[in-house]
Design a protein around this nucleic acid. Structure first.
Length: 941
RNA sequence: GGGCCUCUAGCUCAGCUGGUUAGAGCGUGCCCCUGAUAAGGGCAAGGUCGGUGGUUCAAGUCCACCGAGGCCCA
C-alpha cells in the first residue's frame, strides 16, 4: 500500500524507548548507574527524618551460589522496602551473611585437610574466613544483579570481629540472666565429623541394621508373677525373661533399664522350656516372627504393675530396673524397650526421671573406651556382630535378623550417626521460664500467614533445651573458664567475657583460642582453670543478629517491624532469634513474621539435580533478565509452594512484554508533550480522558493496599489486566484516532496526552518495586522534570477521581463498554461473512431502549469514535428494521452495514464528504478542518 | 509415623461470613489490521473446583477420610 501523502501530517507515536527489552544487556548498565549515583545513599538522605520501617535481613549461609529460593527471599524483601519507600518511609536495608560453621569447614577441609593435621587450627580458621569472603562476594554480585537495593558496601557478617565480639557479649548477658546450663546429654554425633550435629545437620536415610530380640532374665520371678492380676494355677516352668527388641545392639553395654508402657497389657507366655514376657498386642506377631507355634499364656499384667522390678543385664554383671514410659508403643518390637540414657534422647529423658546413670562407653571416634568390658576399642558399627555373638554365648539372644529402616545420617558425610552423651552447654527452655515467655510473645507477634503462629507455637512447646555448644574449629568460642577440679565457672566470668570480647573485637575469635588463661586470670588462678574449647552453634550467631546488628546500627532498631524468611525458619531463625531476644531483653525481636513457601517445579515437586528440574537464577538473568525473575516472584502467591519452570517463566516473559509495550505506547504518545506547558487541567479534559485517569486512581488505591498487605500477586494481576483490558482493548484503542489526527497542540490531543502522562507517572511507580530495571528505564524516558531515579520518588498524587454527579460518570462508561462488546460481536460476524475487514469499514445503527438511548446520546456525534466505526447512529427500538439483530445486551439491537463511502486518506474513516473538496479529494471534512482550519472540537471521546 | 501447609481451566491468579448457568488475564484456535508492527484489535473453545463420603433446602466454600505435593520433626 502506498504511503499516504498525508501521513506526515499525523501525530504518530514516536519514542526512543525500545520495544525489545534486551534485559540481559540493559540491566547491568542500570545497575552501574545506580551504583555511580549512590542510589541507596541518596534514598537514605532523601528519607532522613521520616518514620522508619525496619526489615531485618536473615543472613544466608556464605557457601555456594545463590539458588532460586535465595532470589525469591531477597526479591520479596526488595518489593517491600521499595514500596515502603514510595510511601515516604525511611526503609533501610542492611543485608547480612552467616559465616561460621560446619559447611564452610568441610569445604576448606577438602582443600587444606583437617585442622590439627596438615594445617594448624589458626591457619584453618584463616582459610575459612577467606573462603567465606569469596562466597559472599559471589552471592552479593548475584543479589545485586537481581536489582536488590541495599547497603551492599556495609553488610553485616557474623565473622566480622565486632560481630564476633558482640556474640560473646550477648552470650555473657544470657549467662547472667541464668538461661545457660551445662549438661551431659546424648546428642546426634557424627563419628566422621567427630562432632555433635545440630538438628539441621541430620538427615534421614535408609540403613541396614541388625535387629535383635534379647532376654533380660527376671531376678525375682515370684515377685513378678505375684503382681500379675490373673494369678495362674500353673506357674509354668523354665527361666523367666522380659524380651526387648532393638536395632542398635551396640547400645546394650550402656543399658540401664527396660521401659514398659504403664497402660499396656503384658503377658507371660510359656514356650518350649522357658517363659517370656511380651506386650499382649504384639504376642501373635512376635511369636510368629520367632517361629514359635506352641505356647500358652500363663498370666497378664499392666505394664505399671512391673515398675521397679529388677532384671539381669544380658552380659554384664548388673541388675537394671523395669521403668515406665509413654514413649513405649506397639508399633514394633516386643513392647519392652531397652533403655540406654547415654544413647537416646527419650531414654535420657525417661532415665532422668528415674535417676538412671548416663553411661557413656563410646568415644568421639565411635569406638568403645578402653575400659569397656568385652568391646574395648571396637567401633560401634562393627561391634554389633560381637554383641550378637556375646548374647548368643550367654544364651540371651532370642533372634537376630536384618532390617532396613530410616536412620539418622550426617547431612555432609551421609554416614550413619550415633547418639552419644557428651558434656554440652544449653540454653534451658524452662530453667528461667524461656519457653513460657516465648509462648507469650508468639501471641503478640503478627504471623503472616496466620498459621505461622500455630506452627511455631507447636515447635516451641515441644522443643528440647537448645544445645548451643559444638566441638568445631570455625566458630565463635564459648569463652568460659572452668575450674579444673570442680568444673565450676569462674566466679568473675562476666568480667572475663567483656575482656575477651574486647580482644576479639580487634583480633577476631583467634584471640580466645590463642589465649593463655594466665594472661587474664593471673599465674595463681591461671593454672587452676581451663578454657572451654567448644564453639557456639551457628544458629546462635544468626539468632543473635538483633543484638549485633539491630542494636548496633544507628539506622536500625529492635524490635524490627518485619522478619521475612522461608517457612523452614519457624524452626530456624524465627525461633533462634525469638529465644535469644527473650533471654536478653524479654521481648520478641520482631513485630511481624512473614513467611514464603519453597520453590518447586511445574509438578509441584522439589527441585533437585537428579530430577533435572533446577532453575538457576543466574541462567535466567543471563537470558530473560532479572526483571523476569522479579515479575515471576510477584506473580506467584508465595504463601504456598512457588512453582517455577521453563513454561512458567516463558508466560511471565509474555506478560512482561505486554506491560513493557503498554508503557512504550504511553511514552510514544507523549512525544512532543511538555507537562509544564501542555498539561490540561482536569476540568478542561475530554470526558474519556478523565475517565482513564479516574480508573488509574482507583487502581492505585488497590495497588497501594496490596503492597501494604504484601499481596504482590494481586498487583501483578491488576496491573496486567489494566494494561490489557482497560488500556489496550479500550482506552488506548479509542484514543489513537484523536491522538493521531487532531492538531498537535489542540485541546483534544493535549487532554489525551495529559491523561497518558498521569497514567504513565502513576504506573511507573506501581511497577518500580517489582520491575525495577524497566521502571527506571521508563522513568528516564518520561517527559518533565523529575528526580534522578524513580526510587527517589513517592506515590504519584496527581491522579483525580471522576465526580459522581457528572453526566459521563463511571457507570456511563461501563455502559458504553458493554455496548462496545455487543458491537464487536456483530462486527465479528460481519467480518467472518466478508462484509467488512477492519471496523472502520462499518457503519452501525443501534436500536435502543429509552434508557440506553438517552445514555448513548450523551456522546452525540462522538459515539463513532468510541465504537471505532466510520459512522454510528442511534434510534429508538420502535424504529428497528426486520434485519436488525438482537444483542446479548438487553434493550439493544443493531445493524452493521458496510460503509458506501470513500476512505479518507488521512484518518481512514469512510465518510460522505470524501471526494467533495476540489483541492483535496482524498480527505474527509474533519481532516480538512484539522489541516487547514481551526481543528475539530472534541468533548467526550 | 507426628506437627503445620498446599491442591479452582494448559499457565498465573479471583471467588467475603455456604445461595442464580464457577470468573479474569495469559496461552491456544480462527479472523482483522498494517499509523504501538518480532506490535495492536476482535471472536471462540477450554474447568466432574485433587478424590470419596457426609452435614444442609443449597458446598469450590463446612466436616471426615483418602490421594498427590511441600516445610519441619521423629
Amino acid at each position: 500500500m502506498p504511503v499516504s501523502q498525508y501521513k506526515h501530517t499525523l501525530n504518530l507515536p514516536k519514542t526512543s524507548f525500545p520495544m525489545k527489552a534486551n534485559l540481559a544487556q540493559r540491566e547491568p548498565a542500570l545497575l552501574k548507574r545506580w551504583e555511580q549515583m549512590d542510589l541507596y545513599g541518596k534514598i537514605r538522605t532523601a528519607r532522613a527524618g521520616a518514620s522508619t520501617f525496619i526489615l531485618h535481613d536473615g543472613p544466608p549461609y556464605a557457601n555456594g551460589d545463590i539458588h532460586i529460593g535465595h532470589a525469591v527471599n531477597k526479591v520479596l524483601k526488595d518489593f517491600i522496602l521499595k514500596s515502603k519507600t514510595l510511601e515516604g518511609l525511611d526503609a533501610p536495608y542492611v543485608p547480612g551473611w552467616d559465616c561460621h560453621g560446619l559447611p564452610i569447614e568441610l569445604q576448606v577441609e577438602k582443600r587444606k585437610g583437617k585442622p590439627g593435621a596438615k594445617i594448624s587450627p589458626q591457619a584453618f580458621r584463616e582459610a575459612c574466613r577467606a573462603y567465606a569472603h569469596r562466597q559472599i562476594d559471589g552471592q552479593r554480585r548475584d543479589f545485586q544483579r537481581l536489582g536488590v537495593l541495599g547497603d551492599w558496601k556495609n553488610p553485616y557478617l557474623t565473622m566480622d570481629f565486632a560481630f564476633e565480639a558482640d556474640i560473646i557479649r550477648a552470650l555473657g548477658r544470657i549467662l547472667e540472666k541464668g538461661h545457660i546450663q551445662k549438661g551431659y546429654k546424648p546428642v546426634h554425633w557424627c563419628v566422621d565429623c567427630r562432632s555433635a550435629l545440630a538438628e539441621a545437620e541430620v538427615e534421614y536415610r535408609d540403613k541396614a541394621s541388625i535387629a535383635i530380640d534379647v532376654r533380660f532374665p527376671v531376678v525375682d520371678e515370684e515377685a513378678l508373677l505375684a503382681r500379675c492380676h490373673s494369678a495362674p494355677e500353673n506357674l509354668g516352668s523354665g527361666p523367666l525373661s522380659l524380651v526387648i527388641w532393638t536395632t542398635t545392639p551396640w547400645t546394650l553395654p550402656a543399658n540401664r533399664a527396660v521401659a514398659l508402657n504403664p497402660a499396656l497389657e503384658y503377658v507371660v507366655v510359656q514356650t518350649e522350656g522357658e517363659r517370656l514376657i511380651l506386650a499382649e498386642g504384639l504376642l501373635r506377631d512376635t511369636l510368629d516372627r520367632w517361629g514359635i507355634a506352641h505356647y500358652q499364656v500363663l498370666c497378664y499384667a499392666r505394664g505399671e504393675a512391673f515398675e521397679g522390678l529388677r532384671l539381669q543385664h544380658p552380659f554384664y554383671d548388673r541388675e537394671v530396673p523395669i521403668i515406665l514410659g509413654e514413649h513405649v508403643t506397639l508399633d514394633a518390637g516386643t513392647g519392652a524397650v531397652h533403655t540406654a540414657p547415654g544413647h537416646g534422647l527419650e531414654d535420657y529423658l525417661v532415665g532422668s526421671r528415674y535417676g538412671l546413670p548416663v553411661d557413656n562407653p563410646v568415644g568421639g571416634d565411635g569406638r568403645f573406651l578402653p575400659d569397656t568390658p568385652l568391646f574395648a576399642g571396637e567401633s560401634v558399627f562393627t561391634a554389633n556382630e560381637q554383641v550378637v555373638a556375646v548374647l548368643k554365648a550367654k544364651g540371651a539372644l532370642v533372634q537376630a535378623s536384618r532390617l532396613t529402616h530410616s536412620y539418622p545420617h550426617c547431612w555432609r558425610h551421609k554416614s550413619p550417626i550415633i547418639f552419644r552423651a557428651t558434656p554440652q552447654w544449653f540454653i534451658s527452655m524452662d530453667q528461667k521460664g524461656l519457653r513460657e515467655a516465648a509462648l507469650r510473645e508468639i501471641e503478640r507477634v503478627r504471623w503472616m500467614p496466620d498459621w505461622g503462629k500455630t506452627r511455631i507455637r507447636g515447635m516451641v512447646q515441644n522443643r528440647p533445651d537448645w544445645c548451643i555448644s559444638r566441638q568445631r574449629t570455625w566458630g565463635v568460642p564459648i569463652p568460659f573458664f572452668l575450674h579444673r577440679e570442680t568444673g565450676e565457672l569462674h566466679p568473675r566470668t562476666s568480667e572475663w567475657i567483656e575482656a575477651i570480647a574486647r580482644r576479639v573485637e580487634t583480633q577476631g575469635i583467634d584471640a580466645w583460642f590463642a589465649l593463655r588463661p594466665e594472661e587474664l586470670l593471673g599465674e595463681a588462678e591461671g593454672v587452676q582453670y581451663e578454657k572451654v574449647q567448644d564453639t557456639l552453634d551457628v544458629w546462635f550467631d544468626s539468632g543473635i543478629t538483633h543484638a549485633c546488628v539491630l542494636e548496633r546500627r544507628p539506622e536500625l532498631r529492635v524490635p524490627a517491624d518485619l522478619y521475612l524468611e522461608g517457612s523452614d525458619q519457624h524452626r530456624g531463625w524465627f525461633q533462634s532469634s525469638l529465644l535469644t531476644a527473650l533471654a536478653l531483653r524479654d521481648q520478641a525481636p520482631y513485630r511481624q513474621c512473614l513467611t514464603h513457601g519453597f520453590t518447586v517445579d511445574a509438578k509441584g515437586e522439589k527441585m533437585s539435580k537428579s530430577k533435572g528440574n533446577v532453575v538457576r537464577p543466574q541462567d535466567v538473568m543471563k537470558t530473560l533478565g532479572a526483571d523476569i525473575i522479579r515479575l515471576w516472584v510477584a506473580a506467584t502467591d508465595y504463601r504456598g509452594e512457588m512453582a517455577v519452570s521453563e513454561e512458567i517463566l516463558r508466560r511471565t516473559a509474555d506478560a512482561y512484554r505486554r506491560i513493557r509495550n503498554t508503557a512504550r505506547f504511553l511514552l510514544a504518545n507523549l512525544n512532543g508533550f511538555a507537562p509544564a506547558e501542555h498539561q490540561v487541567p482536569p476540568e478542561q479534559m475530554i470526558a474519556l480522558d478523565r475517565w482513564a485517569v479516574d480508573r488509574a486512581h482507583q487502581l492505585q488505591e488497590k495497588i497501594r493496599k496490596a503492597y501494604a498487605d504484601y499481596q504482590f500477586h494481586l498487583i501483578y494481576q491488576m496491573v496486567h489486566n489494566f494494561c490489557v483490558v482497560d488500556l489496550g482493548s479500550f482506552y488506548l484503542d479509542v484514543i489513537k484516532d484523536r491522538q493521531y489526527t487532531t492538531q498537535a497542540d489542540s485541546r483534544a490531543r493535549r487532554s489525551c496526552q495529559t491523561a497518558l502522562f498521569h497514567i504513565a507517572e502513576a504506573m511507573v511507580r506501581w511497577l518500580a518495586p517489582i520491575l525495577s530495571f524497566t521502571a527506571e528505564e521508563i522513568w528516564q524516558h518520561l517527559p518533565g522534570d523529575r528526580e534522578e531515579s524513580v526510587f527517589l520518588a513517592r506515590w504519584y498524587e496527581a491522579l483525580f477521581t471522576l465526580d459522581a454527579q457528572e453526566p459521563l460518570d463511571r457507570d456511563f462508561w461501563e455502559q458504553v463498554r458493554s455496548v462496545r462488546v455487543a458491537v464487536a460481536k456483530a462486527l465479528e460476524t460481519a467480518r467472518q461473512s466478508g462484509l467488512i475487514g477492519g471496523s472502520l469499514d462499518a457503519e452501525v445503527d443501534l436500536y435502543c431502549a429509552p434508557d440506553l438511548l438517552e445514555t448513548l446520546n450523551r456522546l452525540g456525534e462522538e459515539l463513532r469514535f468510541v465504537l471505532i466505526t466510520s459512522d454510528a447512529s442511534l434510534h429508538p427500538t420502535a424504529d428497528r428494521p426486520p434485519e436488525a439483530q438482537d444483542t446479548e445486551r438487553a434493550g439493544m439491537a443493531l445493524v452493521v452495514r458496510r460503509s458506501p463511502h470513500k476512505k479518507c486518506a488521512r484518518c481512514w474513516h469512510l465518510r460522505p464528504e470524501v471526494g467533495t473538496h476540489p483541492a483535496h479529494p482524498d480527505l474527509c471534512g474533519r481532516c480538512l478542518d484539522n489541516l487547514f482550519g481551526a481543528g475539530e472540537e472534541r468533548r467526550f471521546a
